[in-house]
């Protein structure tokens, strides 16, 4: 039975080669777009998590801070909710670090009569303290401490990125649903066209005593095969695009603690299985409407 099913399905694919090719290309395009979204979503989540784990808030102090003030401000920052540790960064250390950072151009700083940098406090946040709004509130609390002039953290960047991320989360789900419906529709139409071109053959099969399984199974197999091929091609192209673009990013752009990764294997398997199931479903709807024995 399996031998007949495979033989007939493969013969069908061969006889309607161009129809199947168009269907596979469309499925692979849909899979490519969806998996590109998944790639962005997975990496965005990783990136945000990685940043949040290493999140810092820098508080710049007023000029001429006394040792007493330093201890007070440090204690006050430490007492705030979400702060794991606080380090005092004297302006001299900051100036040395700046010189080291700019390297060969550090000679430009030699002309300065005095150090323009202020003293600073570097507050490291606890790992559980991950909400952007809470980090914003904490920064405001630090800014309100007497002796603190300004507060800096990656608020703007994070807020914008978080906004895009949330937008992708919502639109991604809508897109997934839309693309899956589109794939079902495409496969259903392809199979319907094949069924229509083979209606006489199906009628003859019925007359000679073919049961529903004998008639339907090759079409289901075709649906699964269309989904499988489309998924493999779509994911293959995404991998090629990933390999072509990701090595061109310098690590500094994305922070030293983060590396863009391809979609993990379990997600890839899930993509292939979903694509096959959608191919099967498209086939099922078509057969249900067309074949009534």
């Amino acid at each position: 039975m399996i031998r007949f099913t495979l033989k007939r399905a493969l013969r069908d694919i061969w006889n309607n080669f161009y129809l199947h090719i168009v269907c596979v290309i469309t499925i692979s395009l849909a899979v490519f777009i969806l998996s590109a979204f998944a790639l962005f979503y997975i990496n965005s989540t990783e990136l945000l998590d990685a940043w949040k784990k290493g999140a810092r808030v820098i508080a710049y102090a007023n000029e001429d801070l006394s040792g007493e003030d330093q201890t007070r401000i440090k204690r006050q920052i430490k007492s705030l909710d979400g702060v794991a540790s606080v380090d005092f960064v004297p302006k001299e250390s900051a100036f040395d670090a700046l010189k080291a950072d700019i390297g060969e151009q550090s000679a430009l700083l030699d002309g300065l009569k005095q150090n323009p940098l202020p003293d600073a406090f570097e507050a490291r946040l606890s790992e559980s303290f991950v909400h952007l709004e809470a980090i914003g509130r904490l920064a405001a609390s630090i800014a309100a401490i007497k002796g603190v002039d300004d507060v800096e953290y990656a608020q703007k960047w994070l807020t914008q990125f978080g906004g895009v991320y949330n937008l992708f989360k919502i639109t991604g789900l809508v897109l997934v649903a839309m693309f899956f419906i589109a794939i079902i529709f495409i496969v259903a139409n392809t199979i319907r066209l094949i069924l229509y071109s083979r209606r006489e053959e199906i009628e003859i099969m019925r007359i000679v005593g073919a049961d529903e399984a004998f008639i339907k199974h090759p079409f289901y197999f075709e649906g699964l095969l269309l989904g499988l091929t489309g998924a493999i091609i779509g994911l293959g192209f995404l991998y090629l695009a990933y390999m072509a673009t990701v090595p061109n990013f310098s690590p500094e752009i994305l922070m030293s603690f983060f590396e863009i990764q391809f979609i993990p294997a379990p997600f890839l398997v899930a993509f292939v299985i979903c694509s096959m199931l959608v191919g099967w479903a498209g086939c099922h709807f078509s057969i249900k409407r067309f074949l009534k024995i």
Binding site: E203, I204, I207, V208, G209, A210, I293
Partner: peptide, 16 residues
């Protein structure tokens, strides 16, 4: 029905 149909051999004018 398919089992019943296997009891028959059918010949048509247009061969089918």
């Amino acid at each position: 029905v398919p089992q019943l149909r296997r009891k028959f051999g059918v010949i048509f004018q247009d061969f089918k």
